[in-house]
């Protein structure tokens, strides 16, 4: 479904992500783990069209989307939920969700599915997105992305700014979506959370993919255990 080939990207001519290769198959949940500053956000932004990669290619369902603008990639069905969420703060929850679907064609059926999934959003339909709590905003960001019935959902640190219990709840909601067949790619530095959810993963360190494997393999790897799982 998604194939990234030797992708490099950075800022002002300095690459911070180097020749990254990875793949996400249809129906999979894949994680990219790495500590602060490893380059996860940069990698995702380059993949989703918010940043022009300096070299390499990205294929989404066979289409070469390298360097395509974010708005086109979004319309192809690859939806990116940024860590900063990028909601429309002075619009209501309802309006945010409407814009998530094909912005010009409202879709009441998907809307009610999403409100069932996140009852909290249903309660707050008329509230402005900017005044909601961090957890609610995260739900809304995911809900807005889901409104388009994406083929692939890409999430950058969905646990950002959430208390441990809420972060766990966020991952449980993602797990439920997985069961319905959604393909998910997630970047996370709270590795245990991501481990519980994904079946495969890659470790990004200083902009390079250092390791890859199934969640079990990574969980058993001594380097991962020491650096990311706090096991000594």
């Amino acid at each position: 479904m998604l194939k990234v080939k030797s992708l490099s990207a950075g800022y002002q001519g300095n690459d911070v992500v180097h020749q990254v290769d990875f793949e996400v198959g249809s129906g999979e949940a894949v994680m990219i783990i790495g500590s602060n500053g490893a380059g996860k956000t940069t990698l995702f932004r380059a993949m989703c069209g918010l940043l022009v990669p300096s070299s390499g290619q990205v294929f989404f369902e066979g289409t070469d989307i390298s360097g395509a603008p974010a708005e086109r990639i979004a319309r192809l069905g690859l939806r990116f939920v940024a860590a900063e969420r990028h909601l429309f703060p002075q619009m209501t929850v309802h309006e945010n969700l409407l814009l998530g679907a094909n912005p010009y064609r409202p879709d009441p059926k998907t809307m009610s599915l999403i409100l069932d999934l996140f009852p909290r959003l249903a309660e707050r339909r008329r509230q402005h997105a900017g005044t909601m709590s961090g957890g609610e905003q995260q739900m809304l960001a995911v809900g807005r992305a889901l409104m388009s019935k994406p083929r692939l959902l890409v999430l950058d640190e969905p646990s950002t700014g959430l208390a441990p219990l809420l972060a766990q709840a966020a991952y449980e909601a993602l797990g439920a979506l997985r069961k319905q067949g959604l393909t998910v790619l997630v970047a996370e530095q709270q590795v245990p959370l991501a481990m519980s959810f994904s079946e495969r993963g890659y470790v990004l360190e200083n902009g390079y993919i250092k390791l890859q494997g199934t969640a079990q393999e990574l969980a058993a790897n001594p380097i991962v255990r020491r650096a990311y799982l706090g096991v000594t």
Partner: peptide
């Protein structure tokens, strides 16, 4: 950026 991410 949010607008671009929903395809506008």
């Amino acid at each position: 950026e949010g607008a671009r991410l929903v395809g506008i």
